[in-house]
Design a protein around this nucleic acid. Structure first.
Lengths: 158, 158
DNA sequence: TACCTTCATTAGTGACACGAACGTTCGTCT
DNA sequence: AGACGAACGTTCGTGTCACTAATGAAGGTA
């Protein structure tokens, strides 16, 4: 016989914040495993998608759109630029800014990462029916939409 | 006029793993804010609940039930013992083990933390109807239940 | 001019999940 | 009996991640 699994008490298992943390952990693990095959990072994908969808942008704009902090964005863009997925040019209109542009190589990389991310999402939602997956997405969207500061203060990031 | 909020692109917003991470972040923040009022920690609550519901246990048992690593459990129990919420006695039946016992002071502390945790969960689920909150809990349970190693290997924790 | 803000960048912090290794004890098998 | 593997508590260390502080350069505006 297998040894007793010693399950968590019901009162712990029923706590939404704990469930969320656990689920987020599994989700991140799945995504990272997939992306590791391409030597890629969660953040790379977020930046590439944002550039593809909203066009070239400054680092601060990318930071706000992706939720990645300005400070961390630097390293992400360094790596993407080193891989020639992105060009970083000084903005002639505002010399504080860099204009980040998606390159053809970046677009190709995005396509590959997109497939990996999709795989991860499918595996993540595997135990749920498609309807349940959509419902979960809806509920999580409502939740995060509600809990977020309305008006960012001066120089505040994200 | 308020400056453009620069929203995340739709393709990013629709990704479940990203939603989960974001939601887990807010949830943890809410819980930690509440518990900070009592100078308490997330983990303290988990251990106290487990002791109250399943009775005295060894540190390894507590580790598996709460999901806290046995390395981290040491510090948690040190703090709980310093606050006299818990007694840590050598197990006469197995001299490798410590028997962790909930004290009356620990039970009182649990009651206070329980109220704080409940508050946090209510605030977390505020944007959802009670039915939606229950549904979210159900979906997250199914999700985490599915994604977890079936059979722990020798001396493996959690 | 002076002042405040924004930008990119560097460096650092704290929380957290996780792993390695050690000395000790238990159980089992020979 | 002795040998061996596994579990226990403990210490120390690692990698990731969200986040802050501070700085120099550049813009906006009174």
């Amino acid at each position: 016989m297998s040894p007793t699994p010693e399950p968590a008490p019901a009162r712990l298992r029923a706590i939404p914040s704990r469930l969320l943390s656990g689920a987020a952990l599994v989700a991140d693990r799945l995504v990272n495993e997939r992306l590791a095959a391409e030597g890629a990072h969660k953040w790379h994908f977020a930046v590439l998608v944002t550039l593809a969808e909203a066009g070239a942008a400054s680092q601060a704009e990318l930071s706000r759109r992706t939720g990645i902090y300005r400070s961390d964005m630097v390293a992400v863009l360094n790596e993407l630029a080193d891989a020639a997925c992105v060009r970083r040019d000084p903005d002639p209109a505002d010399r504080r800014r860099n204009v980040i542009t998606l390159t053809p190589a970046g677009r190709r990389r995005l396509d590959r990462l997109d497939a990996l991310i999709d795989d991860a999402q499918r595996e993540l939602l595997a135990p749920l029916t498609p309807g349940e997956g959509a419902e979960l997405t809806r509920l999580l969207t409502a939740l995060t939409e509600h809990h977020r500061p309305a008006h960012p203060r001066p120089d505040e990031q994200r």
